[in-house]
Amino acid sequence: MSTVAEELRQVTPAKLSIEHVSKWFREGVVQTHALDDVSLSVDEGEFVCLVGPSGCGKSTLLNMIAGLEFPDSGTVLTEGRKVTEPGRDRMVMFQESALFPWLNVIGNVLFGLKLKPGLKEKERLEVAMYYIQLVGLARYAKSNIHELSGGMRQRVALARSLAPNPRVLLMDEPFAALDAMTREQLYGDIQTIWEARKKTIVFVTHNVREAACLGDRVVLFSPHPGRIREEFKIELPRPRDINSASLANYASEITTALKAYRKTEEND
């Protein structure tokens, strides 16, 4: 088997376990209780969406899985191993694309591949092109980042995070800054890509419909301190259409729950 085929082979998605995780942030005298005793497990190849109001610790949890931040108590495990640092098995797609403006599209996708040992330059290019094609940007491989639209940038960011062939994909509000039309198109694409490259995905969003459209499961958070309040299993066939009626039912159910928690908080 050639190295490229080896590199592109399907890796098994990883299982995630978050066990009794708490996290505080201290800034001078101000202390924020970002997460309070959060436990969550995500199965191999599952697509989980985290929703909740601003400040409920969604990004913090994602960063802990990525190994960019660490819990004050509790543990985060991938495949039963404690997360101690970032690793290529868990790639992150950030809210703003965080693409490097000094590199062009293919340069950005190659960045992670160049850090992977055992690939020749030509093979890396081949792998990078595969992912750029997968996100539908073959014609733009040599383009500079500032020449792309917001939607195209997020596609590049997706290609960049898929390229090292991770087992887990962590996405932090990747479509928040895009217009509705572009987003709808990406919902379709991301489902197709997920079929092609099966990963365990943790996806953070403010958009309840988006969560219901993409997730196998939607996990609802509430803030101050950040806690998991409720989980919804979305049992709809894929690919899902964001505008379908059955999806709207799920969305309104989640929205009702979201509002209820906000009420109880106000009454506290």
């Binding site: 690793g87 790639m91 950030f94 965080a98 992977k116």
Partner: peptide
């Protein structure tokens, strides 16, 4: 330098 760049690079193994 936006800290985001450094974080992104770290996740890719830099």
């Amino acid at each position: 330098v936006p800290p985001m760049y450094v974080r992104a690079a770290r996740t890719m193994g830099s």
